[in-house]
Design a protein around this nucleic acid. Structure first.
Lengths: 177, 177
DNA sequence: ACCTGAACACCGTTCAAGT
DNA sequence: ACCTGAACACCGTTCAAGT
């Protein structure tokens, strides 16, 4: 709230004429961010292509605002019309794809979990794995070296998220359709 | 730091004789939590069974300490010997399972992303989806009703995490072996 | 209706002073 | 080696007072 007031060239207390609390500000931010997530793929074309597009843009939007993730995970969606709109688009495509009704919400939550976790990963410094080549963990060391070699083509966190999304979609297809 | 000092019946400033900063405390907590994660399944039996066991205990441990997730996602693992130990156990099983070296780190990061996201989901109140049955989102409403019906057998977040883990493992098998 | 400024109860961290 | 207490620069929120 202090930083927000500073940016608006206004006293902190002035904010409370427009907003009830910090939580309230975060709720407004959530709606704005969710409306930036790309759901245009749903309702046209193959459902897995739409899911892929949705997941990537969802991750990109929240990787720039990771402090919001703990907030939105706990926020009742009834207060968030844009979020509800997004879920409706996803649900209707999953239903059309033949996913059983009882598995639609679990599928959405599973992908969202991957998206949120991956958003933190994007936020992490590029050197999280630095200095791990000691002889104490030989298997991990060779895996890390192979990952580093592949990094010139694709950033580490993109490679992981790509594999996660593709494996998850593949698995959902295999298990639910 | 204030609460910690309170619990220890000591002045806040006394903490700094034992620890450099709050970040330092969180690093110590990370190590303690990671050492509670069950890696006993690795090195014996089928790799997917070991991964399942690992993922569930990993989620359970961190769902009780979600504020630590943003911290550990950004923490260099070189400073965390127990974490390194855990990665070594996972890596060696994935390599033995025939996963290409260049895909081991991405596989681990993908599962970890799912685990961290799911940990937030466990932490969420049971009524996140309450009051969403309005006519504005028909597909999501029926999906939600089906999910609620299944909830008497298995909690909502367990059903989602179960599907996520099973689909991810299935997908990794299909794509990488 | 919207602003300011002072106040309150908190933070994490530092540092001089003690034992 | 380890503690205390005061101090500092921050928070989010409230409230009386202004326009």
């Amino acid at each position: 709230m202090a930083a927000l007031a500073r940016n608006l060239d206004v006293a902190k207390s002035a904010l409370y004429n427009h907003v009830a609390s910090k939580q309230d500000v975060l709720r407004l931010m959530e709606e704005r961010l969710i409306s930036q997530v790309d759901v245009a793929g749903f309702g046209c074309g193959p459902w897995d292509e739409a899911m892929r597009r949705w997941a990537w843009s969802y991750r990109d939007v929240f990787s720039k605002h990771t402090p919001l993730i703990p907030v939105i995970a706990v926020l009742p969606v009834a207060d968030a019309p844009r979020t509800l709109e997004m879920y409706e688009a996803v649900s209707s495509d999953l239903a059309a794809a033949g996913i059983p009704n009882s598995k639609i919400v679990p599928s959405i939550v599973a992908i969202e979990s991957l998206v949120f976790g991956a958003a933190f990963d994007v936020d992490a410094p590029p050197d999280v794995f630095d200095g791990c080549l000691g002889g104490f963990s030989p298997s991990f060391a060779v895996a890390l070296q192979a990952a580093r070699a592949a990094e010139i083509e694709e950033p580490r966190h993109d490679a992981a998220f790509n594999l996660g999304v593709e494996a998850l979609l593949e698995g959902l297809k295999a298990l639910l359709t």
